[in-house]
Amino acid sequence: MWSYERRLQFPVNIKEPNAKLAQVIISQFGGPDGELSASMRYLSQRYSMPYKEVAGLLTDIGTEELAHMEMVSAIVHQLTRNLSMEEIEKSGFATYYVDHTLGVWPTAAAGIPFNACEFQVKGDPITDLTEDLAAEQKARSTYDNILRLIKEPDVCEPIKFLREREIVHFQRFGEALRMTQDRLDSKNFYAFNPAFDKCKDCDDKPDCGCKN
């Protein structure tokens, strides 16, 4: 269940439209390391996460990613608002415009549409959390790349905020991976998949960490 707050997590107030910037920033909406991918990844991974603290963290970070998706979409919307035909033709925006006019549609900067194959739900806690750590760093690198391309302060400020959140989420997922490993066999974290297998110690160790 979710409810909506009628405000952005961080203000987005862009004065001048700029279709060139919009075409790059849209990757953080529908691109491989974007916010749509992030939110769907964490919210989908929750169901096979056997430890409730970690499933709770996936819920809370997945929810924050929805707010980030809204911020990135707001940036794209404000950068393309009121574009003239001349600006559309001049900025290379025509290839997007022809299919979506000035609507905001999830795609990567190079035109590859959003696809669930951009994230994984493996159903194994260590595998999924390791993907999550990588995902936060990939998103951070993408924001670094965007910040090298733009100078406009009203666009940079929200992008810098989003970049910092990737670093905090990486930290929290690192803690979640440690919490997961603490529940597993310290001699072999991969002895079994606690979201699927039963371990041989179940009978005498009720909190052994496995599914049973």
Binding site: R6, R7, L8, P11, V12, N13, I14, K15, E70, S73, A74, H77, Q78, R81
Partner: peptide, 14 residues
């Protein structure tokens, strides 16, 4: 009032 409230993605410059 909820329906009449501003849309957050429009920003204050909009």
């Amino acid at each position: 009032r909820w329906g009449m409230a501003p849309l957050p993605w429009e920003g204050v410059c909009g």
